[in-house]
Design a protein around this nucleic acid. Structure first.
Length: 276
DNA sequence: ACTCTTGTTCATAA
DNA sequence: GTTATGAACAAGAG
């Protein structure tokens, strides 16, 4: 789940609970998700106060009162939760921050691809991880600058966090659908107008997703997301959801691009041979 | 029992 | 340095 809109939703949830709170203890239920040594982390966190939260791409930051930051990356299945008493700890809680308020903030991650680490600051972490500008901040011109001369297919490039941070598999499909660009188009064949459409689509998809707190079933009917297999709104036995929102008789196609499951409308998004 | 997966990183080779 | 591909990580969901 955790692409940019999910992480922004987690950040807002955490912000209300942790800002101005002092960390009284670090509880590690599974050290697998720690990218910083447990003892180092415990010494760095205990007694510190969280001053604010922020986000870059799919990373959430809790800023400490010594200007260092706790970095939360949620992998494939990460989530956050809050509880007071141990029996109420969410299933798959891997780490919990105990706060002076008595609340415990849970880092929940069934699949354990998520990571928690300490960093000297956001800038230092961004450089170390080679993260590009946040997908909500990048401009159409920056996008064209970064991609206009690149030969690979547009979809894998949009997933590359060093170009712009925050876009994941389903968002890229949604963005390309909204921009009417085929996922296999080579980046250097896109026109300036198409880069502008791409930028507008990124803004539309991300702002819509954040507004609905990344709950897919509330997204507009004009979104491709409803054609994905795991969409709850898909009614078993009916196939309405597999059609393009713009072309009720055209089925959404599924293929693999860059090794990732990819959905697109063959009519809205003409393949490279026909387009460029 | 078997396949699939919302992310990242590394290895390998052309 | 760029590009392309595959594997690995771990474990639940269907």
């Amino acid at each position: 789940m955790p692409e940019l809109p999910e992480v922004e939703t987690y950040r807002r949830f955490l912000d209300d609970l942790v800002v101005d709170q002092t960390i009284t203890a670090l509880e590690v239920k599974d050290p697998k998700v720690l990218a910083t040594d447990e003892d180092t982390l415990r010494r760095a966190l205990t007694g510190r106060t969280i001053t604010r939260t922020s986000r870059l791409g799919k990373n959430c930051f809790l800023h400490l009162d010594d200007d260092r930051v706790l970095v939360l990356h949620f992998g494939m299945t990460g989530d956050v939760g809050a509880y007071r008493d141990e029996p109420d700890a969410p299933r798959f809680t891997r780490v919990a921050l105990h706060l002076a308020s008595g609340l415990r903030v849970a880092f929940v991650d069934a699949r354990k691809f998520g990571r928690i680490r300490l960093a000297e600051g956001v800038a230092q972490y961004q450089k170390a991880k080679k993260l590009g500008p946040d997908a909500l901040d990048i401009t159409a011109a920056q996008l064209q600058q970064a991609l206009g001369t690149r030969k690979p297919m547009i979809k894998p490039l949009l997933l590359d966090q060093s170009i712009t941070a925050g876009l994941g598999n389903w968002i890229v499909d949604e963005v390309l659908f909204q921009a009417r660009i085929h996922p296999e188009r080579r980046a250097h064949t896109l026109s300036t107008a198409e880069f502008e459409a791409l930028h507008a689509a990124i803004q539309l998809v991300l702002s819509t997703a954040i507004r609905h707190e990344a709950t897919y079933r509330y997204f507009p009917a004009s979104f491709l997301i409803h054609a994905r297999e795991w969409d709850d709104s898909a009614t078993p036995g009916t196939n309405n959801h597999i059609y393009c929102p713009r072309h009720p008789k055209t089925e959404i196609a599924k293929s693999y691009v860059g090794g990732r499951a990819t959905y697109y409308c063959p009519r809205c998004q003409p393949p490279p041979t026909a387009a460029a």
